[in-house]
Design a protein around this nucleic acid. Structure first.
Lengths: 214, 214, 214, 214
DNA sequence: AATGAATGAGTCTTCATTCAT
DNA sequence: GATGAATGAAGACTCATTCAT
């Protein structure tokens, strides 16, 4: 499953176009043109347009758990770990935002014959790691027990994606301009906002004394 | 700008198909077939496929501000108003989730020639109402001044959409099944979760006395 | 076969559009739009698009012979009569140039189910009048007997139409500009050129004495 | 810009159908059917229907000037050169009459997005060659100085086209029948008529002594 | 291993016409 | 007598894929 240079180029272009115009809004001709390869190559290398998407997801959404586990072994208190985890998740999602955008749209498309295995596995990894951290914090009496752990994923990822997909809107609202600024904004303000959100939620209705200390 | 019966039927079908398969993933033939009308009617009534989307957004995203303003006049403290506002936003988004799904995808599609005016106006209404409420709470000393108000929109809507678009995933995770349950889940657990999130965020790093009471 | 106001308006618009964009290049919608009438009116009044063309030709190409005959009764020598005749033909063709443009194109279109009776009758009238005048001149010894009389029609009308259809080209060549100038040009220079052409042809290889005087 | 066999076949068929039924009166389906190729091939090879017309004109209206120049170097007096030139122009136009018919109709169609560059260049070539010959004859005192040189083009080409487009009419008038006869008629009688016309015009109002000799 | 040529099925849209009112 | 609504057929074009080389 190694990719040669051309295959990698195709994937690169496909990722960009799929994210911009959607899967159905992108034609293999377009991909071939922008990747400077023959149209037939796509079928030849990947079998079909849908299998190209398969390959894209496979290559973009692999290997994640490892980094996650490092966070768990980190020194620092629970709160600190939450910050690290949120930053890690958002950073990674942002890095692969295009693949995620496609998949998160196509996942709910009933007519799509694509394997979302990798995506789902990844989501479950995400979830189980979050769950582990939260439960450990709850056991330690640092986090509220009332929090709905599975819904933390929508809160983290949803906030990111809604912001990112509407960046044009928020640019106007904030007076941001240019690409660089959005990039910066994500890595500073947005991450901080999500960190704050998660921490606030985890300590909501906790006696403040304790949570403050930690 | 009134819709006759057939036009309404077309819009209904289009909304469903666009939400399921995306705009590009839906053909006018499909719409015509499911709406039991002649293909030519779509061009005849709406002008083109894109103008059909225009019309869909126009008719689904109109009139919102009014309900919003009632919330502001509500009795009850700030916390209560936040709860009401979140419930209102999520309920409305959920009711028109299909139109919103389409638009929130197509909004970032650079090749789409569609008027997102209504959508943007609506988003701004949303924002200004939220801002007003939060600032009033801040002035009253009930809400933290550290919260990033514009990012509350992604937090509220993003959480909803990420959950809804991945409902299949969460169904598996929660052991939910069937449509009804998702509906219920949104109206109870999900709304509560988002309410909690927002309130937590608004009182994070505040002295807890007041917020505890609610 | 009287035309009411709306019918006349339709014919007017149709004539213009047919001449500009051709019969097949013009849609009944276009005609209806520009004539400010309902699309159905065209079928209603004329039966079909082709019958509309029929009607157009009928109303534009009627009544000609009468004016022609006046020329024959004119005082003046044969040369003078030729001048008058050419001027008459070109002026009339120019006045109805749009209808003639359409018909002269569609006449050679084998898939067209249109009655060209009027057109042909008119052409024959043209021809017989020309023939009569020429033969009388030949008998009088003023015109050469070598001239091919039927081919005078292509020479007269062809010169006009080729000029008119390429007026853009000739405008550039002559430095003409604006509509008015073309109009003027036709009525002065072009007519004179054609008159000269015909007279030259009629006296070619004749003893020059007589023709010189004119 | 070479044409393979299929492309040539498409052009052949298109030329015929465009000339018969007009550009708008011909569908790509028709062309594909008659050329025995798949409809998609037309877009594939030429890009679009209009670009097919472009290609047609390009391939039919190229290379002309060369032959023209040979005429100029011919031995023989001016009159003889005029004969040769007229014969050359008419013969060439007749050979490509179909392409010329299309272009001369579409040239004045304002809604057509086609490049008439080649056509115009060709027309200008025609004109400049004619002009050169005439002026040389005028300088030599053989041709009248009163002739309107630019209008010689309409006289030559217009006569040919009007005859050809109304050949049905003239067949009836002359009792010609069958294709071969028209072909013959063009190459003998019609060419002679046009030669005579031009020569007559060029010597009209000249002292006859000189012109007779030449 | 790689590709230019080719294609059938499909895209959206517009066509001229009909019909119920 | 007049028309708005409606439609089946056809318009040009693009699609993803295949296949011979």
């Amino acid at each position: 499953m190694e990719l040669n240079e051309k295959q990698a180029a195709i994937l690169e272009v496909a990722e960009k176009l799929f994210a911009e115009n959607g899967f159905d809004g992108t034609s293999v001709r377009q991909i071939a043109r922008e990747a400077n390869i023959n149209i037939a190559m796509i079928s030849y290398y990947f079998g079909s347009k849908e299998k190209l998407l398969d390959a894209l997801l496979y290559h973009r959404l692999a290997g994640f758990r490892h980094e996650m586990e490092k966070v768990m072994l980190d020194k620092g208190d629970h709160m600190h770990k939450v910050d690290r985890m949120v930053a890690l998740i958002v950073t990674r999602i942002h890095r692969n935002r295009r693949a995620y955008k496609v998949v998160s749209f196509e996942y709910s498309n009933p007519s799509r014959q694509v394997s979302f295995e990798n995506y789902i596995r990844r989501k479950k990894d995400n979830y189980s790691m979050i769950e582990k951290l939260i439960k450990s914090g709850q056991k330690a009496g640092v986090f509220s027990k009332k929090v709905n752990i599975p819904l933390l994923i929508p809160t983290i990822l949803g906030t990111y994606f809604h912001f990112y997909n509407h960046r044009k809107f928020f640019e106007a609202l904030h007076g941001l301009d240019g690409k660089q600024t959005v990039e910066d904004y994500v890595n500073t303000t947005l991450i901080r906002h999500i960190q704050q959100t998660v921490k606030a939620l985890l300590t909501y209705e906790m006696p403040r004394g304790k949570s403050q200390i930690n």
